[in-house]
Amino acid sequence: METIIGLSLLVFALSLFSIFSLKAPMGKEAMGALAGTAIATFLVEAVHNYISGDLFGIGFLQEVGVSAGSLSGTIAAILVPIKMGVNPIFAVVSGAALLEIGIIPGFVAGYLVGLIAPKLEEKLPSGVSTIIGALVLAPFSRLVAVVTVPVVDATLLNIGDMIVIASEQSPIIMGFFLGGIIKVICSSPLSSMALTAMLGLQGLAMGIASIASFSGAFANGILFKRLKFGDNSNVVAVMLEPLTQAHIITTHPIPIYLTNFLGGGFGGLIAVYFGIVSNAPGTASPIPGMLAPFAFNAPVSVISALVLAVGGGLLGGYIGSTVYLLATRRVSLKPKIN
């Protein structure tokens, strides 16, 4: 039952994010900024606080990591309005007011500032617009974030908690399906980093998402190579960041999403086998997914998981591409009826 609920809530959350991304004003830009926030805060925190700091004992870099992780809400409230085209001063003002605020309330505050700041700037006299705008937007941003905190705790983070519980109670099933879904999202217009950051995934669930993102990169690589989707530069690009090849992905969604699901699912199973955990939400992308687990697991376990994840991704890519090639060949050989 926990597995069914966890997967159902994940699909529900995906539906909400899809609607927001596609229908909300500048929704794609806002979600892209949220993914950037996850890299600037959670990834830096994971690598420098736990690896450079705890593992190698470099105090200065540990301070860097702690600082980055504590400013997730502030950075979200700055990057989102900037990505939406707002005056950078207003964006910084909205973030500066969010001391000790988490990433999701910061995202909501930044998004609303991104919507109203341009209109506010139009209404104010040009000589004083910056001063008055700053004085108005700072408390507005803080108010929105503070009001959002209990709502977020009761909804998105609760969904994330259910997914975490389901992953722990039914690790094999969730490993495959969660890993597969996360990798499909990684290659879709949605952002897997933004999704896992919003849900606050941690523990085994985030470990599955991280290894699946890495594994799926190799599934994409072999698929692009076998089906001749572009040249070698396209193969490398889709492995590093799938969204750079959105023009190809949107043209061939069926083989790409099928292959990503298989490659990510195999990677998720590998993460479960080695018990890979991660407490750096928002790092579900090939490179962050490769690095972040080192902060929370024995290096030997992570390296073993990554090596096998390469094999799992290649296997998923080979199966997905073979199925597509056989299906298209069968269709092309089917006799036409006049």
Rank of each mutant, 00 (worst) to 15 (best):
V151M: 06
A145V: 04
A145Q: 04
M174S: 01
V149A: 02
Y111G: 04
L98S: 01
F140D: 10
V151F: 14
L99G: 08
L137W: 11
T130D: 00
G95I: 08
V147H: 08
L99H: 13
A117L: 06
P125V: 14
K119V: 03
L99E: 12
P150D: 06
L115M: 10
I159K: 01
L143A: 15
V149S: 00
A134W: 00
I116W: 10
A97F: 02
L156Q: 04
I132D: 12
L156G: 00
I165T: 01
P118Q: 10
M174W: 03
V128Q: 05
P150V: 01
E121H: 10
D153C: 02
L124E: 05
A109N: 14
I132A: 14
G160S: 03
I103Q: 05
A96D: 07
V113F: 10
S141N: 06
G95V: 13
A166E: 06
P139Y: 10
K119R: 02
I159R: 00
R142H: 07
A138T: 09
V128K: 07
A138F: 09
V164Y: 00
A117Y: 03
L115W: 07
G106T: 06
G106N: 11
I104W: 06
V147F: 12
L112P: 05
Q169E: 15
A134I: 03
Y111N: 02
T155F: 07
L98Y: 03
S129V: 02
L143W: 08
M162F: 05
A138P: 11
I172T: 07
S167L: 07
I116Y: 15
A145S: 08
A96K: 03
I103V: 09
V128Y: 10
A138S: 14
L115A: 08
L135Y: 12
A109F: 13
L156N: 00
E100D: 09
V164T: 05
A96P: 01
L98H: 00
I163K: 03
G114N: 09
L124K: 09
L120M: 15
D161T: 14
G127S: 04
I163H: 02
L124H: 10
T130R: 14
T148D: 12
V144W: 11
D161N: 14
L120R: 13
I165A: 01
L156E: 07
I173S: 06
A97T: 14
T148K: 02
D161H: 12
I101M: 11
I173C: 02
L115F: 04
I172Q: 07
N158C: 01
V147K: 03
I173Q: 02
A109S: 15
P139K: 14
L137H: 10
I173A: 07
V164D: 04
S167N: 02
E122D: 14
V136H: 05
L120Q: 08
L120V: 07
D153T: 08
I131V: 12
V146P: 04
I103S: 11
V146H: 11
E122C: 01
M162N: 15
P125W: 13
